[in-house]
Design a protein around this nucleic acid. Sequence first.
RNA 1: CGGGGCGUAGCUCAGCCUGGUAGAGCGCCACGUUUGGGACGUGGAUGCCGGAGGUUCAAAUCCUCUCGCCCCGACCA
Length: 512
Amino acid sequence: MAKNIKTRAEDYSQWYLDVIKAAQLADYAPVRGCMVIRPEGFSIWEAMQRDLDRRFKETGHVNAYFPLLIPMSFMSREAQHVEGFAMECAVVTHHKLQQDGKGGLQAAGELEEPYIIRPTSETVIGHMYSQWIQSYRDLPVLINQWANVMRWELRTRLFLRTAEFLWQEGHTAHETAEEAEQETLRMLDVYASFVEEFMAMPVIKGPKTDSEKFPGAVTTYAIESLMQDGKALQNGTSHNLGQNFAKAFDIKFLGRDQKIEHCYTTSWGVSTRLIGSLIMMHSDDDGLVLPPRVAPNLVAIVPIFKTDEEKAKVAAYIEKIVAALCGDDEVAAAKNRLSSGDITRYFFDKHTGQGVLVDWRDNRPGDKQFHWEQRGVPFRIEVGPRDVDGSAMVVKKRLDRSKDVVKLENVSAAWLRGMCESVQAEMFEKARAYRDANTHRAESYDELKSILAGKGGFVRCFFQPDREAEAKIKEETKATVRCLPFDARGKTGQCIYSGKDGAPEALFAQAY
RNA sequence: CGGGGCGUAGCUCAGCCUGGUAGAGCGCCACGUUUGGGACGUGGAUGCCGGAGGUUCAAAUCCUCUCGCCCCGACCA
């Protein structure tokens, strides 16, 4: 049992923070509501970026970069958009500092028009698109940007909700409403498959209700996941913006019919919030658990020895293990690299940057086991004199703490890849089984209330979306409609709230 | 933005009521004994006691003002 981590049963939100701290994923910054993403956490983001970026390119998108600062007047052009973001915008009003005469500094050089720090970039990008797009021949425009954004949140939690966060935002412009809708759904699918395949997190796809959609969108689609405390978390959103932003920013094109028309635009994004989701979905009371595809390091090797002779013997043997996994060239290359704190890192996969570590620190082996366990490293290999003699090693699996004795002759890159694939699949199945076991069906409003008041989780029921009804239900149950699941499309029934027939199936849950 | 709480060593906190040389545990460093799931001993380093005023011979402690953070609510990726 980890002594620096509260258990999930004791205090779920403290557990979440303890896991982050123990794995050194992030730290509080000296700025209100902001965090520092530490190397362990950032490498997870890098892995996600690498995989997602590939998926974006495969669907025809290109990357670009737009400015952090947005003229304030841009925000006010789309009425719902302003309404949605006005309350959480950081405003830049000055452009220099000067001495205040009391030994400190004060803002000076007031700007004629203040800038806001982007809470999202629809407006600047819309402005640029209006200049770039002239004719249907310029369409579609399929641009993504990797950036930071700022939303001045009053209550923040590491990764899940911070004032500044990293994300990607795709912004596309199309000739027809149909094509924009297809694009919106295509990117929702990209997100869903990325989250399921890469992060091993099962999702439920579907549109948001009007009251939950993005400010300025015609339709918002989301992927929703269930966390271990029975609360839902939105992992990503894809918006069909219709002509709303095109009209606000004058994004027009000369159509095939020689008539000028407004474009149909979309936007879609996922953020570092996904890391919070990853932590809450897979980790356990012993700390972080990472799916192999996300893990920056796949294996941590813990040497065991008493004497210097034993150390030399174990070291020579470990070199053989690493050579079997990473190749002789990498063993040689690693000798010329600086390493921090007596931990030697070898590249297992140069493309993904994933590595194998050998922990030579002067700690006791038990310490090291806990250390790497808490950091979620998928596999640990323990090597002591007895293993050298038997030409074997003890392989420990993070996911279920199982251990196996493996012969050196069976160790290879393919062997490790095979184990990674099976752990990846196991983690997805485990998460899906948990979600299914915590998804309930309600036939009446009373039933919905009692399920939400009790065990929580996802609740499916027939419900006719309605702003007032949703507000009332939220007030009474703290739950919201997460989406109208695609997997129940076409099914209709009697609305549990209004009693009217023909209501679609909705997915309710309390949410992050 | 309302309600509550807290600022003292890297971390968690004691000391404050009743003013008098700055403390503990953990962590860190050194040495030794240890080492197959969180070792132990000995020694050591570390503080503008959040900041600014005030009261006093004397302030971490009392008073005033400030700043920051955390928690709980309303809003949110």
